[in-house]
């Protein structure tokens, strides 16, 4: 009986004791609650994993993807890619749908905000591969999808959908009149 209890304790212990910062080469972003984290995981469709709603190929890029961590089965939510450009992580992980990967990046863990397992992915590679892929493909994908986007500057100044909402509702979302009064005071 004593041996059985010890065995069960061994099974349970690694879940709480894992340190995923070891060997991480993630670049700091100087965020309040960031912790470097490198780990192996399976790329999953979150709606499929949680609700059993499972189209082919993880939804072909429409959906947010998760990282089901191999060491402990924890579902990590990659919110962000490595570009400082208001860009998410799904585009970076979509090519790895259903595959086992290794990722390196920053985990956000903040008890004050009651948040854990939110992740910024910086690099990804299939388990067994030697070369890392930088998680910075979002803007390139946007440019390919929006070859006719007008104007100058970064994507978020030129995105047709975003600009459509700003034209309709203003920068504050309350209409042009409120915008005009605010802008006169702000600048």
């Amino acid at each position: 009986m004593r041996k059985l209890i010890a065995l069960l304790a061994l099974v349970a212990t690694p879940v709480a004791a894992q340190d995923f910062s070891e060997n991480s080469e993630a670049r700091p972003w100087n965020l309040v609650a960031e912790v470097p984290a490198r780990f192996e995981a399976t790329v999953v469709d979150l709606l499929c994993e949680l609700a059993g709603d499972c189209p082919a190929n993880c939804g072909d890029g429409r959906r947010q993807l998760g990282l089901l961590r191999s060491a402990d089965g924890v579902l990590v939510y990659p919110n962000k890619n490595s570009q400082p450009a208001f860009t998410g992580a799904a585009v970076e992980l979509q090519p790895f749908c259903g595959q086992e990967v290794e990722v390196d990046g920053l985990m956000i863990t903040d008890p004050e905000l009651n948040v854990d397992n939110v992740y910024l992915v910086q690099t990804v590679r299939k388990v067994g591969d030697t070369e890392w892929t930088k998680a910075n493909q979002w803007t390139k994908a946007w440019a390919n999808s929006n070859p006719d986007a007008e104007g100058k500057g970064p994507w978020f100044r030129r995105d047709p959908r975003v600009n459509g909402f700003i034209e309709k509702d203003g920068y504050l979302g309350l209409g042009q009149e409120v915008d005009d009064a605010f802008i006169a005071d702000w600048f």
Binding site: L46, A90, F156, V162
Partner: peptide
């Protein structure tokens, strides 16, 4: 708007102070 269009997950910040990650 930028972040939603950029593919960052949106959440519903409930009156209870909790964030609910919206999947659909």
């Amino acid at each position: 708007l930028w972040c939603s269009a950029g593919g960052i997950p949106v959440g519903l910040l409930g009156d209870d102070g909790e964030v609910y990650m919206v999947l659909k």
